[in-house]
Simulated scan of single mutants.
Amino acid sequence: MSNKIRAKVVKGDQVRFISHLDLMTTINRALRRAKIAIAFSQGYNPKPNVSFASALAVGLTSDSEYIDFELEKDIDIREFQESLNNALPEGIKIIRVAKIDGREKSLTSQINRANYLARLELNKVLSIDDLREKIIEFLSQDKIMIRRKRRRKKDRVFDIKPLIYNLEVVGVQDDLATINMLVQTGSSGNLRPEEVINALADYFNVIAPAKLINIHRSGLYIKVGEEILTPIEAVVKGN
């Protein structure tokens, strides 16, 4: 019997400005408060065997973060979920759990798709159909080049079009628009949602990148062949 648990976690508005490192610290403190016996790595500097998926940027919210926990002994997953939720601060909540095989690959090596909802302000009022036409025009380019600034490294200029799998307008109200995007993430390539919005703003002056209201990560996925599964669906199907 495996002592590993995969959890789906919400990061809400109350904690949107804490960093990924702070989130890791918060989770580990909650494990101690809940008296959950987490397993530790071997070696000179042992650390809790808690593995996070793709890091969420500061300022973003999410209802689809994933964390793998390795415990010292088997525990009922509902008991684990309830105990840890009682020890977590407001804004962080485990909403689903599943047992995983001890040989399961790490989350970071599997996850390769991320879905985001971006809410932003337009420079002028447009109908949803007009904005959808502009998105289609934007995606019809042969290449969508951006410049990514990097600390202590030369800027990287590259084509993001192959990293965009879906980009659509899901709502417009007055001068506010909501855009849904499915993009590549993970070790094979990572596209940030704000880079897509900035590229849209550079292409036409309807979107004001400085007036981006919020970005919400609504999904992380594993694409294997023709299937796109959540990290928990992949575990359940594998079992």
Results as ranks from 00 to 15, higher is better:
169 V>G: 05
56 L>Q: 01
188 S>E: 14
219 G>N: 12
131 L>F: 09
140 S>R: 00
63 D>V: 00
174 D>M: 08
31 L>F: 02
69 F>E: 00
224 V>M: 11
42 Q>E: 13
183 V>A: 09
66 Y>P: 02
222 I>D: 09
137 E>A: 01
72 E>S: 10
188 S>Y: 12
148 R>A: 13
223 K>E: 15
105 K>C: 00
104 E>A: 15
44 Y>I: 15
239 N>S: 13
113 R>V: 03
215 I>A: 00
66 Y>H: 04
17 F>G: 03
187 S>R: 12
136 I>C: 02
59 G>R: 07
189 G>R: 03
171 G>L: 05
174 D>V: 06
188 S>M: 13
129 D>V: 09
146 I>R: 08
14 Q>D: 09
137 E>K: 00
165 Y>I: 00
205 N>Y: 08
168 E>G: 04
167 L>D: 11
78 R>F: 11
152 R>S: 14
37 A>Y: 07
62 S>D: 11
33 R>W: 06
88 L>I: 02
83 S>Y: 00
13 D>G: 06
89 P>C: 12
165 Y>M: 09
74 D>S: 14
216 H>W: 03
193 P>L: 09
24 M>F: 04
3 N>V: 13
62 S>R: 01
178 T>L: 05
170 V>I: 15
131 L>V: 01
61 T>M: 14
220 L>M: 14
133 E>G: 09
134 K>E: 14
65 E>P: 10
50 V>L: 02
185 T>P: 06
6 R>C: 04
110 Q>M: 15
224 V>D: 14
5 I>Q: 04
29 R>Y: 05
224 V>F: 08
194 E>P: 00
141 Q>M: 00
81 Q>E: 13
185 T>W: 02
218 S>Q: 09
115 N>Y: 10
55 A>M: 04
19 S>W: 13
62 S>G: 10
102 G>W: 03
68 D>S: 07
17 F>Q: 09
146 I>G: 06
117 L>R: 05
63 D>L: 00
85 N>T: 10
209 P>G: 10
155 D>G: 00
4 K>W: 09
34 A>M: 06
167 L>T: 07
49 N>Y: 11
6 R>H: 05
180 N>I: 03
228 I>A: 12
48 P>M: 05
229 L>A: 04
72 E>W: 02
122 L>Y: 03
38 I>V: 15
172 V>T: 09
208 A>W: 04
225 G>Q: 10
208 A>L: 07
